[in-house]
């Protein structure tokens, strides 16, 4: 796949601001990620995590600052299928009449012709992706009949089929079963070895320690950013969560 040896940043966000009709959702946020890095995005509800994702994918426009994806604009990153977004389970309509196969095939849409007719290579990519998330028995199952974990894996497969080099995952571990959690962690290691860059938001502090090389603590703006071992301190977490002590968040034993 890709080589990890170049020094360029995959994601470069410089002083970005996002506001919705005058209401500031995120300001002066910075982030730099290299190939092969996994970064945790931690913050309260409404701290701007989803907004940050939306800015990186170009789903919302930034009012200030600069975003470079592989050194290029967000627009060209969209064209090149560089970024894949894996939504929260709550972020999708689970009653939509669509099968696992069709969802994963949507990962290929961006590189198909205007009628979105799958080529042999698209079919193969979808098949492989579904196999990697262990859903081959559910190809034609409507997503409404899947468990939370299976649905999460479906959207991961869509990101895999897209062959994106950057993955943005919104709460990848929320509401999933142990099996899915294990499978996702294995995939993370593979992605890392492939040189993919991962940014994931999570509420679960254990996962940050377990997977993330870097952590970005935000509360409308960056509270702290750096190596997990250095930045992920009780003091910083307390600041991020508006003064709530880490004891409360972790439980007293940690």
């Amino acid at each position: 796949m890709e080589t990890v040896n170049y020094q360029n940043f995959r994601i470069e966000a410089e002083n970005i601001c996002v506001d919705y009709n005058g209401k500031v959702a995120l300001y002066d946020a910075n982030l730099r990620l290299k190939p092969g890095q996994i970064c945790g995005l931690v913050g309260m509800n409404g701290a701007g995590k989803t907004t940050f994702f939306n800015a990186l994918t170009g789903f919302v426009n930034i009012s200030k600052g600069k975003i470079r994806i592989n050194g290029e604009s967000v627009r060209s990153a969209q064209k090149d299928q560089t970024i894949a977004y894996v939504p929260q389970n709550e972020g999708i309509d689970s009653q939509f009449p669509i099968s696992v196969w069709d969802v994963v095939m949507m990962g290929r849409y961006g590189s198909m012709n205007i009628f979105r007719c799958p080529r042999e290579s698209d079919v193969q990519a979808v098949k492989d992706a579904i196999e990697r998330v262990d859903l081959s028995d559910h190809l034609s199952t409507p997503i409404g009949n899947l468990s939370g974990g299976q649905r999460k894996r479906t959207f991961l497969a869509r990101a895999i089929a897209q062959r994106a080099s950057i993955l943005l995952l919104d709460e990848p571990f929320s509401g999933v079963d142990i099996r899915t959690e294990k499978l996702i962690s294995e995939l993370f290691i593979q992605f890392k070895n492939d040189g993919k860059t991962i940014l994931l938001s999570t509420h679960d502090m254990i996962h940050v320690r377990e997977f993330c090389d870097l952590v970005l603590l935000i509360n409308k703006t960056v509270v702290a950013y750096g190596e997990t071992s250095e930045v992920f301190t009780p003091e910083n977490i307390t600041t991020t969560f508006g003064g709530i002590s880490p004891d409360f968040l972790f439980g007293p034993e940690s």
Binding site: N54, T57, G58, F59, R75, Q78, K79, D80, Q81, I83, A84, Y85, P87, G91, I92, D93, F96, I98, M106, G107, Y109, G110, R158, Q162
Partner: peptide, 11 residues
């Protein structure tokens, strides 16, 4: 179904 994904892949 998922306008965010559509936007992300340049549609």
């Amino acid at each position: 179904f998922d306008p965010r994904h559509a936007k992300t892949v340049g549609i």
